[in-house]
Simulated assay, not measured.
Amino acid sequence: MTARDLACFVAALLVAAAVTVMPAAAQQMPTCSVRNLPNPPRVMVDCGGILLEREAAAQLGFVVSERGGTQRTEMVLESGRFLIREHPAGDAQILTPHAIASVRGTLFAVEVAVGSTAVFVVEGSVGVTHRGGGGGVTLGPGEGVDVAPGEPLVVRTWGAARARALLERFGL
């Protein structure tokens, strides 16, 4: 993990207030390899079976949590954009200040801006809820949702221009 990724991890811990952080001795942080990709410029991060691409400026980290007696490593995206390419079998979650995206065998992108998070699915499905809890939605291919505090979750089919604007950042 690079110094920048470590700094992102520390920043992510600060925004992960809804997650119970385990003591340092119990943490099983993923071993990550990082590779820079050109055209468009981005960073490929491979962390123990989770393969994602992120913009260089994206603030991404990991936190170990315990829910229902099960310990898990979750990704925390504080700002920027990233694309999940692969992940291990089972349920994984991506936390942002506004939303929780639950991975369900898919290719999808997340964009965090000031005051909102956008989630868009290319393949498969993703469950999305407000970070503070409440009812959720499930997105399918071509669908997205904008998550803002206090606003209802409305699933929309994204137009080609909006989807392209996000996915071009990852060479798709």
Rank of each mutant, 00 (worst) to 15 (best):
A58P: 03
M44E: 14
Q28T: 01
L14V: 07
P38L: 15
C8V: 01
Q59T: 01
G48F: 05
L37N: 06
R42S: 02
A24S: 13
A11P: 07
C32N: 09
S33W: 10
G49K: 11
P30D: 05
P23Q: 12
V45T: 09
T70D: 05
R54T: 15
P23D: 12
A58N: 00
V19T: 11
R4I: 10
A12T: 00
A12D: 01
A12K: 01
L13R: 15
Q71A: 15
C8E: 02
A25L: 09
V43C: 00
V43P: 03
I50H: 01
A25W: 07
V34C: 12
S33K: 09
G49D: 07
M22P: 03
R42C: 03
L6W: 02
E55Q: 10
V21H: 14
F9L: 03
P40H: 03
T70Q: 15
C47E: 02
R67S: 15
S33M: 08
M44H: 14
P40Y: 04
A3H: 02
A3P: 00
L37R: 12
E66D: 07
G68N: 15
E66R: 13
V63P: 11
R72T: 04
R67T: 13
Q71C: 03
R67H: 10
Q59K: 05
I50S: 02
M22E: 09
A18T: 07
I50W: 03
S65L: 08
L51H: 11
A56G: 12
G69C: 11
R4C: 05
G68W: 13
L52D: 01
N39I: 09
V15E: 11
V10M: 09
T31Q: 02
C8P: 03
S33G: 08
A57K: 04
P38R: 15
R35D: 14
V15S: 04
T31N: 04
A3Y: 00
L52C: 15
R4S: 11
A56T: 12
E55T: 13
R72I: 01
V19K: 13
T31W: 04
G68H: 14
